[in-house]
Simulated scan of single mutants.
Amino acid sequence: MLLLLPPSEKKATDGDGPPLDLGALSLPELGAAREQVLTALEALCGGDPAHARDVLGLSAAQGDAVDRDREIRAAGTLPAAGLYTGVLYDHLRLAELLDGPSAAATRDSVLVFSGLWGVVGPTDPLPAYRLSIGTKLPPLGALGRYWRDHLGDPLTKRADGRLIVDCRSAGYAAAFTPAGDAAERTAAVRVLRETVVAGTVRRSVVSHMAKATRGAVARALLLAGRAPESPRELAEALNDLGHTAELVAADKPGRAATVNVVEQG
């Protein structure tokens, strides 16, 4: 099983580990691509601060993020498991998983997507940064497209023979789309809210709080030591673990399935 996660917009800023070493990150074959993005980010943040904020989608009050991005190579680091915060990571609690019996499975299964690094593993030492996948970073352009050109081959190899459990948001999903056999071993986790209105059952797609459910789902699978091998087995495992999950099969060969996780109320 391979769990694909989005990063969080908010990140811890208290890293006190050694400075960034690109060679120490997971998927070292991405080193040259990471260096290119990092160099472009440093150049942007070393210029006009107002222009940098505009490109990065930041307000004037978030100027400290531009300063951090400019000094990123000298900043202290901490493991990705502690860097990423927010709703999904509050419910996943990666650091706890890495300290317990699920540590090996967590290290092997979890990949976090990033506008700056492409993808990272949970133990990768990283500095705080701010760079969304939706950024058009001069001179590289749209980062979703940039990373799509670099991630396909290494991630397809990493996922060989494994179920891909896709918990990413749409922007990060655009950076890698499983194809062929890998797509048929992929299940996108979608969260639905079910309510009853005037006796009629209604369902709606959950947006922000879907992150909480995806974090809980990923944690439950890792804690239980479950390693489903197909979208159908994933739905069955989640139901066994107390969630309400429904498989929506792919509409044609070579496409991913969806597993709906249904929340009540």
Results as ranks from 00 to 15, higher is better:
G118C: 01
A43N: 11
P28G: 06
L22I: 11
R202H: 11
E96C: 05
V119T: 01
A237C: 02
S207D: 14
L238D: 07
T195C: 12
G82Y: 00
E194C: 10
S26W: 02
R202D: 08
R232A: 15
D149T: 09
L116C: 05
A32M: 10
Q62F: 06
A235L: 06
G180N: 09
C167D: 06
S59Y: 15
I133H: 03
L238N: 02
P127F: 05
G15T: 09
A174W: 14
R203D: 11
T186H: 06
T200S: 15
V120K: 02
D251A: 12
R219E: 14
D16R: 06
S114E: 10
R185F: 07
N260S: 10
T213D: 01
S169P: 07
A188D: 09
G161K: 00
P79E: 04
L3E: 04
P49L: 08
G31V: 04
G115E: 06
G144H: 00
D90E: 13
P154S: 02
V197K: 15
R73G: 02
G254Y: 05
E184I: 06
A12F: 00
S26Q: 09
V191W: 01
A235M: 05
H150M: 05
Q62D: 10
A75H: 06
A24H: 12
L38C: 11
D21C: 15
A74Q: 14
S102Q: 13
R34N: 12
Y172D: 00
K211C: 00
A220E: 01
L131W: 01
Q36H: 10
R53C: 01
A224W: 04
F176N: 00
A179Y: 00
V87G: 06
V206T: 02
E29L: 03
L2C: 02
L44A: 11
L131G: 01
A32Q: 15
A216I: 05
Y172C: 01
A188M: 10
W117L: 06
L38D: 06
L116P: 07
D16P: 02
A210K: 00
L140Q: 08
K10M: 03
T106S: 13
R190D: 14
A75Y: 03
L234I: 03
L25M: 10
Y129T: 09
S26Y: 02
V217R: 01
G115Y: 11
T13G: 12
S132C: 09
S114Q: 08
G17W: 06
A65Q: 14
R214N: 07
T85L: 04
T186S: 11
G134H: 11
E194R: 15
R73T: 06
